[in-house]
Design a protein around this nucleic acid. Structure first.
Lengths: 293, 293
DNA sequence: TCAGCTTACGCCGAGCGTAAATATG
DNA sequence: CATATTTACGCTCGGCGTAAGCTGA
């Protein structure tokens, strides 16, 4: 199974067309057809239906692996380059929206100010994009957040070798309208709220999927999805009674909404710093900054 | 980065010789040399020193990825075959030594008796070998054990897509000589024992590495390593005072040794069943058996 | 009918082996 | 000097493009 065949297969499956994939990859349509034929004959089974072009069950299985394999190959290249190449003059730094709000991010902002010679670029992306980007070398550093049991690592998409060098964690809070019956309570078990109306705002709050996994229930149902990345908007949605949301306990909330710390189950909002191999200078600079934090 | 180049690279690095790798892979020594040269030029850096043949720093980084990539490719093939191929007439079943001792394993032994038409082969291997073997299709089912926080999954080596379909978990116990000061105690915090002399018997007890990760300390030091796979021998080593060991709480111990349940930190000995994609018949048969268990 | 995939076919170069050259301990 | 890797060189075949063929909406 040669890598160029996998690459073509992924391109065809994702575009749904041999000719489109050919254009993407700078092959002729004929070459793409031959690639797919070679893969299919090497595996002894059809991988795609034609007209319409869609993966067969076997193709679906392969697809699940192919992306990961190609990504891992990119990660390998990036990792080797990090050992050999010049240290970059600019650091590209990706974070998930909530992670950026923590003291860790602030520390890195300091880095940018105290070392004006070193350009630092921030970029906000989804969690798996951050992980992929760091693995493949597109980003030098990544900051991701999520919900986990205390001192447990986050479950990141399988992306190869990623190192976690620093974390911050804090409790969770449920954000409710100020006039909600539970608004005055000091602590709260999530179990009491399984039937509540939730807002799923994966970009900006704890993704409901994380919560479901942690609570081990399917009953957290989203009444509303919010795809945006602005916390204030989310809080206004909560204030307007569209549903509840789970956020890190330290979030500051405006009038109109109240936050109630989550007491059980024991869960934390956790932030992890992702990186590939760092040279010792970069590593110690970071460690220093994160200590001050 | 073509797969055959990676394969050659891994073979050369692991054998420490171009000519040996060539013999392994049925190439000429010249072809191997060209493969390495191609990889090195494609990555723009030396990967191996010659005389002696050993990975450079960049080579080490690549090596860390290369094995995983090749394994994942095997896993992809195996996964596709599982969808397409005939269901196997024989089931090859691999377990880690301790996992085999659980009720789950007993249930699967029943399977073998109640369905004499279906041959079942047991094989005992190390945890990562089981995971690798299941991923690559060498084994149909795998049973692995390890230590984790309650209801946490085991941390398996990165091996691609593995499904976990059933688990058993139980507490841990420290096994000590009968005349040991703590032998009479009802519960025990591991922290009290960090300075004790431990026996590291990765094949047969909880690997110390798991414990270290769970306790988040480096101070668990092994006074003795036992590479064998026989629990009784390990217990005799404990009785003779060579050190302590951590085992699942249900292990039955002979006279001369005592077991003390571990109360904190909260950890469990956990058994997971690993498999690739199962057809629905196999899956339901298994589920049934494991429920009875 | 025709858009889009497959097949036929010829050409080029990647990659293999043989064998000579080179390097190192 | 012996052993092991590299380089030179020729050949074969894998894999690409062009173009003709096929097929289902």
């Amino acid at each position: 199974m040669e890598t160029h065949l996998l690459r073509t297969f992924v391109a065809v499956a994702s575009s749904g067309s041999f000719s489109a994939a050919a254009a993407d990859l700078d092959y002729t349509q004929s070459a793409v057809s031959q690639h797919i034929a070679a893969l299919e004959s090497s595996l002894g089974t059809a991988l795609l239906t034609r007209r319409p072009v869609a993966p067969t069950p076997a193709g679906e299985r392969l697809l699940e692996h192919a992306g990961a394999i190609l990504l891992r190959i990119e990660a390998a290249r990036a990792d080797v380059r990090r050992v050999v190449g010049e240290p970059p003059g600019e650091i590209v730094f990706a974070t998930t929206p909530l992670a950026a709000a923590t003291r860790v991010a602030r520390a890195l902002t300091q880095l940018r100010q105290t070392r004006p010679g070193l350009a630092v670029t921030f970029e906000v992306a989804r969690r798996d994009e951050v992980a992929r980007g760091v693995a493949s070398g597109a980003y030098h550093l990544g900051l991701v957040d999520g919900i986990a049991a205390p001192s447990d690592p986050l479950r990141l998409p399988d992306v190869g070798l990623l190192r976690t060098s620093a974390v911050a964690q804090e409790g969770l809070a449920v954000v409710v309208p100020a006039d909600h019956p539970i608004a005055g309570r000091k602590r709260l078990g999530l179990a009491a709220l399984v039937d509540a109306r939730w807002i799923d705002a994966p970009a900006v709050s704890a993704p409901l999927d994380d919560l479901r996994a942690a609570v081990e229930t399917d009953s957290l149902r989203a009444a509303l999805g919010y795809a945006g990345a602005d916390v204030r908007t989310l809080l206004e949605l909560v204030a307007a009674g569209h549903g509840l949301a789970v956020l890190p306990a330290s979030v500051s909330v405006p009038a109109g909404v109240a936050k109630v710390p989550v007491g059980s189950p024991r869960l934390v909002h956790r932030v992890e710093l992702l990186h590939g191999q760092l040279d010792s200078a970069a590593a110690s600079a970071l460690a220093e900054l994160l200590d001050e934090g």
